[in-house]
């Protein structure tokens, strides 16, 4: 019990830092660099030889994915969908890779509260920025007194609560599955963790990605409607 408690305390309190020469950076940043290299490399590699006739297998998969993101954005945001699709696709790809990175043995970056806080702050700026962009200063401010002026304090509280809940939801889910996986690995290190890992790492990670992107889209759709 003491061993478990000590390991959990280590995992939860300390953000692991790696020393790269004179630089000391958190582990989540290093893993994020890895994800960036992977995604940028894949993007360059897969879009090098795009053909209009007789597309290859990779191009077909790519086209399916891009049209899926575009269709999703257009379906939920209407005519403005095209503008938001690149951001939603990017953030979805990043969170998916981050959640799945537990499979290759590194700590998922989304287990770091700072990463999810940054992601949810980006979502907050997107939500309220698009509100002011599409409605103008007056229309954007008027959104705070809808449907009636009495609700102004609640609408103001929402500015803080929305990113907080986005941030804590992603962090809590990844941390929760991480802790449960660690406990299972301590109790039964052989074979038994595999099905649990499929559920907690793959299934739960994908669901949380969809939920994050979907909630961001929904909030944006609500402010620009």
């Amino acid at each position: 019990m003491d061993v478990i408690k000590q390991r959990m305390t280590e995992e939860l309190t300390g953000v692991k830092k790696l020393a790269l020469g004179p630089l000391v950076v958190p582990e989540s940043v290093v893993v994020t660099w890895g994800i960036m290299i992977l995604l940028v490399g894949l993007s360059i590699l897969l879009t090098r030889r795009l053909r209009e006739e007789k597309p290859g297998k990779a191009q077909l998969v790519l086209e399916w994915f891009v049209s899926f993101i575009n269709g999703f954005a257009q379906e939920s945001l209407g005519e403005h969908g095209k503008l938001f699709a690149p951001y939603l696709g990017t953030i979805g790809l990043y969170i998916a890779c981050a959640n799945l990175s537990g499979l290759v043995g590194v700590t998922p970056p989304t287990k770091d509260l700072n990463v999810t806080a940054a992601l949810s702050l980006m979502s907050m700026f997107l939500i309220y920025g698009s509100s002011f962009y599409f409605k103008g200063l007056k229309g954007g401010l008027h959104k705070f007194v809808e449907p009636m002026p009495l609700l102004l304090p609640i609408n103001l509280m929402e500015v803080a609560i929305r990113p907080l809940s986005l941030c804590m939801r992603l962090f809590g889910n990844v941390l929760g599955s991480f802790v449960i996986m660690e406990l299972i690995k301590i109790l039964a290190p052989l074979i038994i963790p595999i099905p649990f890992s499929l559920y907690f790492d793959v299934f739960d990670g994908m669901i949380q990605t969809i939920v994050f992107v979907f909630l961001t889209t929904l909030f944006v759709a609500e402010t620009i409607e």
Binding site: L12, S165, M168, R169, F171, G172, N173, L175, G176, V179, I207, I210, V211, F214, L215, L218
Partner: peptide, 19 residues
């Protein structure tokens, strides 16, 4: 999916607090 995500959040908050 949306409803489950919102409902699940309360459980996650409790879990984070207990941890």
């Amino acid at each position: 999916l949306l409803g489950c995500a919102l409902a699940e959040a309360t459980a996650i908050y409790g879990f984070v607090v207990s941890l």
